[in-house]
Design a protein around this nucleic acid. Structure first.
Length: 271
DNA sequence: AAAAGCCCCTGGATGC
DNA sequence: TGCATCCAGGGGCTTT
């Protein structure tokens, strides 16, 4: 579920409220993707400084160390004064003086990992290979084109890989390529500078607009206040196989790339 | 180094 | 209704 917009919307929905909170206790449910990395009880007494985002990871900064949180495919966070009795898929509760942060994740591809610091092995391992943040000035059109140049894989796969630019998942890769008029199967290395510039702008544009709309709620995404997103209503191609292109009415086509569905308009998007 | 496949896990939709 | 199959917002790891 969660790509950059959903993770950022989640962050915005509780970061201010949890900042300054004192951790009272931690409850862990079933194992997630990786072990927490320390005794849960030893988090008690620490203070939450704030919440940052790097790619699709949330970084919950503590006065000592930090928690790296990832929502995987089906994870969502909620932050409330009180939480109901934990359900079968509630796998992590951070009980604080300001409320309880709860991770619900049916598929358990998500994770909560403690790292003693920013340069700790856990942080470096998980964050070290990540590409540039698309919504910052560090996302440079010339560098983006140069990065595409050295990859022979289909451009959609390169967007998803996350080592060139982070945060673009399966929905927004298809959407950005549509906006840029580029066929998802095109080899990244063959994309011209003008087209790379269009893709660069499209990535920024689609992610920023998705954040503004609260993300995409396809099945069950909601932010930490329990609110749904609405960007799925503006999707041009994602999950619209066979439906008319919103620009030219040609039926949207779906193919599989790397075991993931890709959607595109065969008329508007050129190889 | 980069690309391609394989998994992790659960639930919902679909088909017989 | 029951059961099998396929598919799903990710991404690390192993194999080519």
């Amino acid at each position: 579920m969660p790509e950059l917009p959903e993770v950022e919307v989640t962050r915005l929905s509780f970061a201010d409220r949890i900042a300054g909170a004192r951790i009272e206790r931690v409850r862990v449910g079933k194992p997630l993707r990786w072990p927490l990395g320390l005794q849960a009880e030893s988090l008690a007494g620490r203070t939450v400084r704030g919440v940052r985002r790097r790619g699709k990871y949330l970084l919950v900064d503590l006065d000592e160390g930090l928690l790296l949180m990832h929502l995987g495919m089906s994870g969502s966070l909620s932050f409330a004064d009180t939480q109901p009795e934990p359900g079968a898929h509630d796998h992590f509760d951070l009980v604080t003086s300001r409320g309880t942060l709860r991770l619900n994740d049916p598929r358990r591809f998500g994770a909560v990992v403690y790292a003693p610091g920013e340069d700790a092995q856990e942080s470096v391992k998980l964050l070290g290979r990540l590409g540039v943040e698309p919504l910052t000035d560090a996302f440079d059109a010339a560098a983006f084109h140069a990065g595409l140049k050295r990859r022979t894989a289909p451009v959609k796969q390169v967007l998803l890989a996350g080592d060139l630019v982070v945060g673009v998942g399966n929905i927004y890769a298809s959407e950005a390529l549509f906006l840029a008029g580029i066929r998802p199967t095109s080899r990244a290395s063959r994309i011209s500078r003008p087209r790379a510039d269009r893709l660069h702008a499209a990535v920024r544009d689609v992610l920023a607009r998705a954040v503004a709309k609260g993300g995409s709620t396809l099945r069950d995404f909601s932010n930490a206040r329990g609110e749904s997103g609405y960007f799925q209503l503006e999707a041009m191609v994602y999950d619209r196989a066979g439906e008319p292109c919103r620009i030219c009415a040609t039926p949207v086509k779906t193919i599989r790339q790397g075991q993931r569905a890709t959607f595109f308009c065969p008329h508007c998007q050129k190889p």
